[in-house]
Design a protein around this nucleic acid. Structure first.
Length: 618
DNA sequence: ATAGGGTTAG
């Protein structure tokens, strides 16, 4: 940065009319009609009211013409306006032409850089200030701490203590934020706990810190103890739930926010839409969409992308496309969401067509684009296209494939039965394969009855200590599919020996805008009794339809009592039963299981689509 | 005479 050099250049004399204004200012000067200086407070007002660059330039020119270009407040105001219009370089120029800038001006220029994440320059101005003997104050410290990284932040912390500003609420909050963003939760917490006065903002900063680092419950505890809450802290709390796989709690909190009449803004809606998508909660998602329309909130590219994502995850591709077509100035993120939406529901051709329309729009695909494209190829069984995209990623677009891209390719090859080729690719990878990749391969081994490869992979995983419950279950399923009951028994004893537990499945259903979640064998729902009565009824219907339950071979614990076994009910059965007792007959019931959307239309007492623990999608 | 500066979400 040249600011240091500029600053130490001998100041230009106030009366020196030949001092050149910034380049494009010369033109503006000629259009200035006023020849008599306005009083400073009128000019102050004029600057504040200026909304365009040209207006500002005219005023600036006028200041120079009337030798007011060293006026501290006018320059300060001008600087603010330049910065807020994004003309940071004009701000710096103005600053550098101002003799002996005051602590106010320093603070403002530091702040202007800090809000634009130019913390290095902000820090440079701060150091300049110290070397020029201008004393910082609380305002300066909080400005320079904004978006400051941990290492310089710690040094500034010492400065704050030295100057005695560290107990000031603003400085303390900014410091807390520095440690929070740097991942030092304990220091942040200590600063918070010893804070003389906890403001709404400092509480929000601490909640943000907890939420960001996964401690959502601590965040909630603080949140619940607040005496006043603004939209920001509601947003932080809702977003915390959304980001940490607790979308239902996000929606519950959102409804609470509405009942206490805090007006949601765009940030709120982005989190809420994400939660709806995670839950497959189409009713709620549509409600949010109409809320946006009813409140005349502009569907900008961010909201639009969130809507596309929500509709795609809820299975409403047509609605997603409608939103997509309506977004002006679509960025690559919006395109990526739409491509991923098509890919996730098997509309491979639509995804590829969208991809082909990107370059005419001068948009460059990103690594995320290729995740969409490769999974689209996988879903559509386009093997050679998949390979060609995989190669062009690096060769044509310079994007290095990540683990997810390998995962897509393994999925693509495995599904098509090219198991050896998939395994070769995994062995050739420069990155360590993740559990998803192994799961894909093992799943394909079951599907194609390739016991030998399945065993080889599991042996490898066990030897590398990479096996988890899913690994064993998949291997057992491979044996079971081939009728190899010895194998099944062997896996079961391996699981018992290694203390492996099955991870519970989780299903959810949305009824009257509320999402109800169920784990396998769940008894926690308030309507549990009715649900289990309904289940009994369903079992009766199933028997009448000639259905015999398929025993889950691995997970059946022989020692279990009959009563307990009856409680081991698949989570989706519970969600279905609840759906049946809470909706009108003939209603389409949509269940989301482990993030997959399943939809059923029940016509007769029980629809034959339901086939014991496995549902077929309509 | 007085005027002007700061912290939390995305």
């Amino acid at each position: 940065m040249s600011s240091t050099i500029l600053f130490t250049t001998p100041p230009i004399a106030t009366t020196n009319r030949s001092s050149l204004p910034p380049p494009s200012l010369a033109a503006a000067t000629t259009t200035t009609k006023r020849h008599h200086p306005l009083p400073p407070d009128t000019l102050t007002l004029l600057i504040d009211k200026s909304k365009s660059v040209s207006q500002l330039l005219q005023i600036h020119a006028s200041l120079i013409r009337h030798s007011l270009d060293q006026h501290p407040i006018l320059n300060f105001k001008l600087q603010r306006s330049y910065s807020s219009l994004g003309l940071l370089n004009y701000s710096v120029l103005l600053f550098n032409r101002t003799h002996n800038p005051s602590v106010y001006f320093y603070t403002a220029i530091i702040h202007s850089h800090a809000v634009n994440s130019l913390h290095e320059q902000a820090l440079e101005f701060y150091i300049q200030m110290l070397t020029h003997g201008v004393e910082p104050n609380e305002f300066t410290l909080s400005a320079v701490l904004k978006s400051c990284p941990l290492t310089p932040g710690q040094a500034l912390h010492s400065q704050a203590v030295k100057f005695g500003f560290d107990s000031n609420t603003y400085v303390r909050t900014a410091l807390l934020d520095v440690y929070a963003r740097g991942g030092d939760v304990l220091s942040a917490q200590q600063l918070f706990d010893t804070m003389p006065e906890k403001s709404l903002v400092s509480l929000t900063a601490m909640i943000t810190c907890y939420a960001k680092h996964g401690n959502v419950d601590s965040a909630r505890l603080l949140f619940d103890g607040m005496v006043e809450r603004d939209v920001v802290c509601w947003n932080v709390m809702i977003h915390g739930y959304t980001q940490h796989g607790r979308p239902n709690e996000a929606l519950v909190l959102f409804r609470k926010m509405l009942t206490v009449k805090v007006k949601p803004n765009e940030v709120t809606l982005l989190s809420v839409l994400s939660a709806c998508g995670q839950l497959g909660a189409l009713e709620s998602g549509k409600w949010v969409h109409s809320y946006i329309e009813n409140n005349r909130i502009q569907v900008n590219v961010h909201l639009g992308t969130a809507l596309i994502d929500m509709y795609s995850k809820c299975g409403s591709l047509d609605d997603a496309r409608l939103v997509f077509d309506q977004i002006k100035d679509k960025d690559v993120v919006a395109w990526n969401s739409m491509i991923a939406g098509y890919a996730m529901h098997g509309f491979g051709q639509d995804a590829l067509q969208l991809f082909n329309n990107m370059s005419p729009m001068r948009l460059h695909p990103t690594d995320i684009t290729f995740i969409g494209i490769l999974s689209a190829c996988a879903n559509a069984g386009l093997i050679s296209e998949g390979w060609s995209f995989f190669h062009s990623m690096k060769d044509e677009y310079g994007i290095e494939p990540k683990i997810e891209h390998y995962g897509c390719m393994v999925n693509l090859l495995s599904r098509a039965g090219h198991l050896e080729e998939a395994y070769e690719l995994v062995k050739k990878m420069k990155i360590d394969p993740d559990p998803v990749i192994w799961g894909t391969l093992l799943g394909a081994c079951r599907l194609y009855g390739n016991i030998a490869l399945g065993e080889e992979i599991v042996e490898f995983l066990v030897s590398q200590n990479l096996a988890n419950s899913g690994t064993y279950i998949l291997l057992s399923n491979i044996y079971a599919a081939a009728g190899n009951w010895d194998g099944v028994a062997r896996v079961r004893s391996m699981m018992i020996d290694n203390g492996v537990q099955k991870e519970p499945g989780c299903s959810s259903i949305e009824v009257n805008n509320k999402v109800h979640e169920f784990l396998a064998g769940d008894l926690k729902h308030p309507k549990s009794n009715e649900i289990y009565m309904m289940l009994e009824e369903i079992n009766g219907w199933l028997k009448a339809y000639g259905y015999t339950p398929q025993m889950d071979t691995v997970l059946q614990d022989i020692g279990h009592s009959e009563k307990q076994r009856s409680l081991e009910v698949h989570s989706e059965k519970l969600a279905i039963a609840f759906g049946l007792i809470s909706t009108q007959p003939e209603t389409t019931i949509k269940i989301v299981k482990n993030l997959r959307v399943l939809q059923f239309a029940f016509t007769s007492p029980i629809h034959p689509m339901y086939m014991g623990g496995e549902f077929q999608e309509i």
